[in-house]
């Protein structure tokens, strides 16, 4: 069963992250890299995303595409990245999320299963 883990950060923390000196940021990445290593055989995809300020949203007004600046999720949190994981069930996906080391939030979402053969 495939799930996507969406990694969220409060906007405040995302800013802090960005303004960190390079050396400190490298150090902060260490536990994250460890997490990816630990679950390497279960992670089947994913990326860290550029900050929210780089986001562009296309919406449709009466069917006409309108391009606007910013993300479409409005709130205190923003999505900093995602990982696609292949595990047995929700408990296993939750277990991975519990080990996520940044102190941010993790949303666990199953992907739609169209009946393709499972790994």
């Amino acid at each position: 069963m495939k799930y996507v883990l969406l990694f969220g950060e409060t906007k405040e923390r995302a800013k802090q992250w960005e303004s960190m000196p390079e050396a400190q940021r490298q150090a902060a990445y260490a536990p994250i890299n460890q997490w990816f290593e630990k679950y390497g055989n279960k992670i089947t995809g994913g990326h860290e995303l550029q900050p929210e300020r780089t986001a562009t949203t296309v919406k449709f007004n009466n069917g006409r595409p309108v391009v606007t600046d910013g993300p479409f999720i409005e709130g205190k949190e923003s999505i900093g990245g995602y990982a696609e994981v292949t595990v047995a069930d929700l408990d296993e996906a939750i277990e991975m999320a519990k080990g996520w080391p940044t102190g941010g939030l993790v949303e666990v979402r199953p992907v739609v299963d169209r009946g393709e053969p499972q790994r």
């Binding site: 069963m1 047995a88 069930d89 929700l90 408990d91 666990v108 199953p110």
Partner: peptide
């Protein structure tokens, strides 16, 4: 069903 919550007694550590 959709999120596949397992039907089992939790593991010792949980």
């Amino acid at each position: 069903v959709e999120a596949r919550i397992p039907y089992r007694v939790p593991a010792e550590r949980d």
